[in-house]
Computed example of a mutant assay.
Amino acid sequence: MRHQLSFACDGAALAATLDAGSGTTGLLIVSGGNEVRSGAHRGMATLAQRVAAAGHPVFRFDRRGIGDSEGGNGGYRGSGPDIAAAIAAFRSAAPQLTRIVAFGNCDAASALLLHQPLALDALILANPWTYDDDGDESDEPALPPATAIRARYWSRMKDPKSLLRLFRGDVDLRKLVRGLSAIGASSAPAAPESLPAKLDHALTSLARPATILLATGDRTAQAFVEKCRPPGVPVERLDSASHSFAGEDAEWLTGRILERLS
């Protein structure tokens, strides 16, 4: 059964949804970006329904300034109090809980790392966000990760139509040279105050089990692989480009989560 409720965070009323279950291990879903708690195309609502059907309570919420919640939107970097308040509200709404596992995708995964320690028993981190907030001020857009460029060019080299376009002169040689030069470029070490460095530090000092889930064709996941080196943290990969594990990928995601709730 699904219940709508609210809880307080620093004087603001936050909206939440509890999918009830009788189990003693619950799942806290932290939304990424500025998405509401139902997720893209109701993906998180569907995930919650599936996990609750297996007997595990699931708690979702809109952080301050998002969706039905009051307050100002402080982004994922300012969401620590929101997550902590949601954990307390989850325990109050489902008092039988002895364990809470948190799941976050994209910058929600990064938030769960940046705001440690939190009163959680395990983390499931999908496609963690590693780009610092400062945008690229150059005239040209930032290149995708080298792994994505390699995969793209290898695919095109095997495609006769792409080779024909090259021979006809239909390919922008400037972009081609720029992309090829990035393939062999080595990644510079992350600056100490950069987001990747902070995530690496958080992963190294984690006091609870964590699992990283990556969609190998997703640029955010590819950037994480290039920029971060999670020591001893299990990584599971899905051959998909879906950042939000949409469509058939949702079953894979549900299965990985249920494994860690059991």
Rank of each mutant, 00 (worst) to 15 (best):
Ser38His: 14
Gly26Pro: 12
Pro230Asn: 08
Gly80Lys: 09
Lys158Pro: 01
Thr254Asp: 13
Ala86Cys: 03
Gly80Tyr: 10
Ala146Val: 06
Gly11Trp: 08
Phe59Trp: 15
Arg229Gln: 14
Leu113His: 02
Lys227Asn: 09
Gly78Phe: 08
Ser69Phe: 05
Asp10Thr: 10
Gly39Pro: 15
Leu261Thr: 00
Glu70Ala: 15
Leu113Met: 10
Ala210Glu: 06
Leu206Phe: 08
Trp129Arg: 06
Ala182Glu: 13
Val235His: 08
Ala246Lys: 10
His243Arg: 09
Gly71Glu: 01
Glu259Ala: 14
Met44Val: 05
Ala94Ile: 08
Arg219Pro: 00
Gly179Thr: 06
Ala8Leu: 03
Asp159Gly: 02
Ser240Pro: 09
Glu259Pro: 00
Gly184Ile: 11
Asp200Gly: 12
Gly255Cys: 12
Leu253Ala: 14
Gln4Asn: 04
Ser187Arg: 10
Ala210Asp: 03
Gly247Ile: 12
Lys158Gln: 14
Ala16Leu: 05
Gly67Glu: 11
Ala84Ile: 02
Val235Ser: 07
Ser262Lys: 13
Leu5Gln: 04
Ala85Val: 04
Leu118Met: 13
Gly255Val: 11
Gly169Arg: 10
Val36Ala: 14
Asp132Cys: 07
Ser205Gln: 08
Ser79Asp: 10
Ser31Trp: 02
Ser69Val: 01
Ala182Lys: 12
Arg208Tyr: 06
Ala111Ile: 04
Arg156Pro: 00
Ala53Lys: 13
Val225Gly: 08
Asp134Val: 12
Ser205Met: 06
Thr25Ser: 14
Leu123Trp: 05
Ala108Thr: 05
Leu28Val: 12
Leu166Glu: 06
Ala86Thr: 07
Met1Lys: 02
Leu118Cys: 11
Ala12Leu: 00
Leu125Thr: 07
Ser69Thr: 03
Asn34Thr: 15
